[in-house]
Design a protein around this nucleic acid. Structure first.
Lengths: 244, 244
DNA sequence: AAATATTTGTCCGTATGTATC
DNA sequence: TGATACATACGGACAAATATT
């Protein structure tokens, strides 16, 4: 007979806390019991409890304040993107292609709503981004502009889940795709086409431009990825803590 | 002047660890330094280090083993779904509708691939599920069958990101939608239509059936949700630890 | 096989900073 | 200005699991 218990304490506590939040239908702003109370209730040390509760905080479910307690947050998609990005570790370029595929389906599936909800002000924003795309020569800069462009397209749809998913897909791009896909001239052209279609209020052209935008060339991407992977065993030093 | 430092230690450490994994291009199976080493390197106590490292373990990035150390995992979509589910807390039924919308776009966007990759064996599986749908009277059972049905449709597409996203959307359904949407007879009919279209190898009918399947009636859902929310401040007792 | 070293798992105690009343 | 409640952070100690010799 297998030992069903074996599970580590902090895992159990994490599940308990999740269950507590769900079963009590806690809403944003509600408070969790104090660390001491929870530790006592669950019969574990404060250390173990903290390992579970700090996970909840880091993934964005709650926020803790010294002298106050733990407060449940409202929906926050930020973590999701960093989460999927980390989970992509080591599974090379296949997942980037997959996430691209998903992004394509999502953006095209919401094309109608995107097209219908765009405002004149946002068209101006898009045009500004196109201008900057022509000027910049930095790859990472181009990436930021690219992401901004697409987020504007989806902004008015008011679907936070969609935004969260798209962000996840972008997180992949940021670290992988930008290295080996498309030259800047082509990328600019693709976004220009999308903008033109929007400005002319031509939905079919908009759909077509979107489809073209997502037609990447993944040839040799895998080779590129493997030959350019690096090894450097250090903890980051570029992110010094600012004290004053 | 604002104090830029203020960020809590365990957040900083978490970021450092993330950075370490990414910058060193760690792959599945690779080991992290020991807790003591990492704590020393980062100049923090072992407790704080563990709060960060246990987060990585709970979200599925690494696995720890007593007497061995921390090992980097391969891609694992499991956490993503539980993560987004928890993040949905308290933002009532709007997000359920949004996630439904996203699921609809995804499943319909991949309808062609789904249709093309389905095998005769899977058709048999689908038929078995339909049979069970007729027999069961439990709501949660129906939910499981429903989820299984759709996962079979997407199984051969081989897109882990898609699966992860769909799972996230399902996680919402599990706790919310099943409470107030559709009667079982209608749900059965919808899935029957999808199955029939697949069996007749009629793609247009398949698309149409999928679209119909996703046409929910959200009227009064919000009212229902609010009147049925419960309050019961207890830690779960239904999940006793099995020891032997 | 057996003893030992290594590494994680769990707990305790204590001091400090911060928000609230 | 306290006084109190709470989270933050550190260090030490021992148990349990695993690897090594």
């Amino acid at each position: 007979m297998k030992n069903l218990k074996s599970k580590k304490l902090y895992f159990q506590v994490y599940d308990e806390l999740r269950g507590y939040i769900v079963k009590n239908n806690l809403r944003p702003g509600d408070k969790l019991p104090t660390e001491m109370e929870m530790a006592a209730l669950l019969g574990v040390s404060r250390n173990v409890l903290r390992e579970a509760v700090k996970t909840l905080e880091i993934i964005g479910v709650v926020t803790s304040k010294s002298g106050v307690g733990m407060i449940v947050n409202s929906f926050n998609a930020n973590f999701l993107s960093s989460c999927i990005f980390l989970n992509l570790i080591g599974d090379d370029v296949d997942l980037v292609m997959q996430s691209q595929e998903v992004r394509k389906v999502l953006e095209m599936g919401f094309a109608r709503q995107s097209f219908d909800t765009i405002t004149p002000e946002q068209l101006t924003e898009l045009e500004n981004i196109l201008q900057k795309m022509l000027q910049t020569e930095s790859v990472t800069n181009f990436y930021e502009l690219d992401a901004e462009f697409h987020k504007i397209l989806l902004r008015n749809i008011k679907n936070e889940v969609l935004i969260a998913f798209i962000d996840s897909a972008w997180a992949c791009d940021k670290y992988y795709r930008s290295k080996f896909i498309d030259d800047d001239a082509l990328r600019y052209k693709k976004h220009r086409q999308i903008f033109d279609a929007l400005q002319m209020k031509d939905f079919e052209a908009f759909e077509k431009a979107l489809a073209f935008h997502f037609s990447y060339n993944f040839k040799n991407a895998k080779d590129y990825y493997h030959t350019h992977s690096i090894q450097q065993k250090v903890f980051s030093e570029d992110e010094e803590v600012e004290v004053e």
